[in-house]
Amino acid sequence: MDQEVFDDNKIEHIPINEIRPNPYQPRKHFNEHALEDLAQSIVQHGVMQPIVVRKSIKGYTLVAGERRLKASRMAKKTTIPAIIKQITDEEMMVLSIIENLQRENLTAIEEAESYQQLMTHLELTQVEVAEKLGKSRPYVANMLRLLALPSRIQKLITSGKLSSAHGRTLLPLKEEDVMMTVAQKSMRENWSVRTLEKYVNDFVFRAPRKESVTQKPKLIRQYEAQLKDLYGATVDIAVVKKTGRITFEFTSEEEFKRLIDELSNKE
């Protein structure tokens, strides 16, 4: 589908004021300085790559090319080169996300929200979303975990003050105020993800009594990390004498159902 959409299409110049925004656009933040630079380029050279639109009852609906459309408006253009497509809502949604992912324009939170949007509106599983977008299932699962973070932590990630990996590492802390305190300490002291993970683990699993905590063997910690990457969830492996326990942590009913589905379908 993705390749066919852009091949062998006629380019037309259509009125900009007849183009409505894409309702499935995952990107919410646009760099104003970059838009101004693009607008200046359009003034000098025109729009080098056509946008993609879908014909609607009145005018057109944008499918791909919002930056070019915004910059063209800034450049006071009245028309814009466009390819007019006959596509479904599903194709429109997927194309919007793919364009932004390929251009690396989405923030981590916007990317996670786009995956959630596909799952909700198209009733897709994480596996199906991964297949449609050419991503691995664990990658999609890890991105979706960001949506379980409080909005204040999400804003730190969106602004670039905190990485998405740091954000996911904060999830076991559960309480928003605790997350913010630790996040600020991490940013202030420029912690690596590994340093933050050790701090969070020590914080979460700290014994209430003055008892020595035995460090887990390196092999066990490696297995925990492998399972975490595979299933996109925090994993704890505990071994007492000859009895072992593997615990998967989830933060919502949806994540619980996702884990059950993943565990049930593993070959």
Rank of each mutant, 00 (worst) to 15 (best):
N22D: 09
P23G: 01
Y24P: 13
Y24C: 05
Q25G: 00
Q25M: 08
P26V: 02
P26M: 01
P26Q: 01
P26C: 00
R27H: 00
K28E: 02
K28N: 00
H29I: 01
H29P: 00
H29T: 01
H29N: 00
F30K: 01
F30R: 00
F30I: 00
N31V: 00
N31W: 04
N31A: 02
E32Q: 11
H33P: 05
H33W: 12
A34D: 06
A34Q: 13
A34S: 12
D37E: 08
D37R: 06
A39I: 03
A39D: 02
A39L: 01
A39M: 04
Q40L: 03
Q40K: 06
S41Q: 14
I42K: 02
I42H: 13
V43A: 07
V43K: 05
V43I: 13
Q44F: 03
Q44I: 06
H45P: 09
H45R: 05
G46Q: 11
V47P: 05
M48I: 05
Q49T: 08
Q49P: 05
Q49A: 12
P50Q: 06
P50S: 09
I51L: 02
I51V: 13
I51F: 04
V52W: 08
V52E: 07
V53S: 09
V53F: 03
R54E: 03
R54D: 02
K55P: 07
I57P: 01
G59A: 06
G59Y: 03
G59Q: 15
Y60D: 12
Y60A: 02
Y60L: 13
Y60S: 04
Y60H: 07
T61Y: 10
T61G: 11
T61A: 11
L62W: 06
L62S: 07
L62C: 02
L62Y: 10
L62M: 12
V63P: 10
G65E: 14
E66R: 05
E66V: 07
R67E: 04
R67Y: 06
R67P: 01
R68L: 06
R68P: 05
R68D: 06
L69G: 04
L69E: 03
L69C: 02
L69N: 09
A71G: 07
A71R: 06
S72A: 15
S72I: 12
R73C: 13
R73L: 10
R73A: 10
R73E: 07
M74P: 10
M74A: 13
M74C: 14
A75I: 15
A75T: 10
A75N: 14
K76T: 14
K76A: 15
K77Y: 09
K77M: 03
T78W: 03
T78Q: 09
T79W: 11
T79L: 06
I80T: 07
I80A: 08
I80N: 04
I80Y: 11
P81F: 15
A82R: 13
I83D: 13
I84T: 11
I84C: 14
I84K: 09
K85P: 04
K85S: 14
K85V: 05
Q86D: 11
I87T: 14
E90D: 05
M92C: 05
M93L: 06
V94R: 03
V94K: 04
V94H: 03
